[in-house]
């Protein structure tokens, strides 16, 4: 079926309009889970997470290892109903949000410093953006599981692309 001149104009207009819409670069990362390494403190957690990565790599298991700036998607390895992640402002560079597929917790950028509730068993989306608010939650290793009943832990450390997020099952 031949298009009319108007339909051709409409097609061109929509293409032009679409090109004006910036799409944020949310990268999808396939994630896996490793056995949890007990966490005593942030430094210890960092060390144990790094060790866990190395051990798991040697054993051929996967690790929920997320690198890069953008949107990162993982599945929370928990059977508990609710867990919490506390996001604490760091020094500079990034801000971070955490949410689930079913209930996004707060607007983007609004929950640095807040404790967000994450439903167990649902996908967890961890998003790290450059931010004028100048919080470096990444280098400061300040993503922390605040709820001791959670059966997963989140740690952040330096990685090949600048930082690394690990989620490990307890």
């Amino acid at each position: 079926m031949n298009e009319t001149d108007f339909e051709t104009r409409l097609r061109g207009h929509l293409a032009a309009k679409a090109s004006l819409i910036e799409v944020p670069d949310h990268k999808f990362v396939q994630t896996k889970v490793v056995p949890f390494q007990p966490r005593r403190n942030r430094f210890n957690n960092l060390v144990m997470a790094a060790a866990g990565v190395a051990v798991v790599a040697m054993l051929g298991f996967g690790v929920l290892q997320v690198t890069g700036v953008g949107s990162e998607l993982g599945i929370i390895p928990t059977k508990h109903d609710r867990c919490q992640i506390t996001i604490i402002p760091g020094q500079e560079g990034y801000w971070l949000t955490a949410s689930t597929a079913e209930a996004r917790v707060g607007p983007y950028g609004a929950n640095v410093g807040q404790t967000v509730t994450v439903e167990g068993g649902l996908p967890l989306m961890i998003e790290v953006f450059d931010s004028p608010q100048a919080t470096d939650a990444i280098a400061a290793n300040t993503i922390d599981t605040a709820d001791k009943d959670c059966d997963f832990g989140v740690t952040v450390s330096d990685g090949p692309a600048g930082f690394q997020i690990d989620v490990a099952q307890r």
């Binding site: 104009r9 061109g12 207009h13 293409a15 032009a16 309009k17 090109s19 004006l20 819409i21 910036e22």
Partner: peptide, 11 residues
């Protein structure tokens, strides 16, 4: 829209 659209004649 995010950007000025005057540059694209199709818009």
């Amino acid at each position: 829209t995010d950007k000025p659209h005057i540059e694209d004649p199709q818009f």
